[in-house]
């Protein structure tokens, strides 16, 4: 199974993170009734741009399998919180809910 993390601006589609294009040290797990993303990164331009748009994020996990269809999970960040910790060089994104979907189940 191949797992991809994708974070984009929900309105303009601007890409912040795509683990297919560059290595991202991250973890995601359940927390406080939702899900917490922890991304290890230096405070750079991407972090600054993301924080400016922290109320409008689309966060995805794609799971691609050899023997079954790709499962996409979209996380509703809403008002987050979305924060950056300079001491730990850690970006945290909290999502209160999520929707899992199989793209192939929708007609084209």
């Amino acid at each position: 199974m191949k797992q991809t993390l994708l974070i984009k601006h929900a309105v303009s589609g601007r890409l912040f993170y795509d683990s297919r294009k560059s290595e991202i040290r991250y973890a995601v797990g359940e927390a406080d009734g939702g899900w917490m993303f922890r991304i290890e990164t230096e405070r750079d331009q991407t972090v600054e741009e993301l924080l400016k748009r922290k109320d409008e994020l689309n966060v995805f996990i794609f799971r691609e399998y050899d023997d079954q269809p790709t499962l996409k999970t979209w996380y509703y960040v809403g008002n987050g919180p979305v924060q950056y910790d300079d001491k730990q060089s850690l970006l945290t994104i909290y999502a209160g809910s999520r929707i899992e979907y199989y793209p192939h189940e929708y007609s084209e």
């Binding site: 929900a10 309105v11 409008e56 689309n58 996409k72 979209w74 509703y76 809403g78 929707i99 979907y101 793209p103 189940e105 929708y106 084209e108």
Partner: peptide, 11 residues
């Protein structure tokens, strides 16, 4: 042609 399955929120 068109736009495949994708999410939206608060819009």
């Amino acid at each position: 042609r068109g736009f495949g399955a994708h999410p939206h929120s608060d819009m």
